[in-house]
Design a binder for these strands. Sequence first.
DNA 1: GTACAATCTCTAGCCACTAGAGATACAAGA
DNA 2: TCTTGTATCTCTAGTGGCTAGAGATTGTAC
Lengths: 139, 139
Amino acid sequence: MAGFTIGKLSEATDTKVQTIRYYESIGLMAPFTRTEGGHRLYDIDDRKRLTFIRHARELGFSIDAIRELLSLSDNPQTSCERADDIASRQLDEVEQRLKRLRALQKELKRMVTECGHGRVSDCRVIEVLSDHRLCQTSH
Amino acid sequence: MAGFTIGKLSEATDTKVQTIRYYESIGLMAPFTRTEGGHRLYDIDDRKRLTFIRHARELGFSIDAIRELLSLSDNPQTSCERADDIASRQLDEVEQRLKRLRALQKELKRMVTECGHGRVSDCRVIEVLSDHRLCQTSH
DNA sequence: GTACAATCTCTAGCCACTAGAGATACAAGA
DNA sequence: TCTTGTATCTCTAGTGGCTAGAGATTGTAC
């Protein structure tokens, strides 16, 4: 019945104490209760909620998307169409980012391998960065 | 000899006017000169410099890295070892990001395809987000 | 000369935290 | 019970890289 202190919750979910308090300040999650002295006490449901939040953040969801997902998961009898929609849009975004990053990787690789370890005046790194047309991929 | 106004430079480099002034405020680039009335005037070298900056930002370099790259390109007789090093570290980071993003993509794809378009209580999106163990990739 | 667009400086806001100051509460050992 | 030391409290400000807006001034085309 004692529940978790913020420190224990922090450890259990690998989330900084400050971040937990930040989530509280923006209304994402509040502690189950407080001690007489004012220390936060969390229960297992709080822990689940925070795990949900952290996991969604790791998957790249914005706080706003998470807020919506949380309200969906709080009302499990509603249609999941909305949740599916949010995840789909997230997937789209991730795929866009992947595309861009692959182009960057290619360019950086080329820059590094072509650098002859000589003087900056011959250095492809500087050269490519000075002139977009030298890129072989669009980004 | 008239040079570019900030608006022309903005158009030419696809950079917002505010962003150009921001770069000036952090010491990345200053205008060639000013009009009597105080309007900024840029020359072709300023344009090159801004193109360099924007290109590097697109490639994911931090402002600090760019600051260093700029000082290297301002002194082309120095060794490019340092520039190569910066680019290599950037490549490492990009590859880390790629790895993570690919895992996320996989997870999101699975979440979306497995969503049966029914009720939230059966929804994989919510389920996966509630329980990390349901993920098939580490991220 | 006048209208209107462009630019000026300055301040504040965005996201998602993160860090620190200074005060208070709690847990373990003497 | 008292003390010591760690954990927590609130509050404010900073991070990076911009972006937006207010209100004043300048530049330009007719």
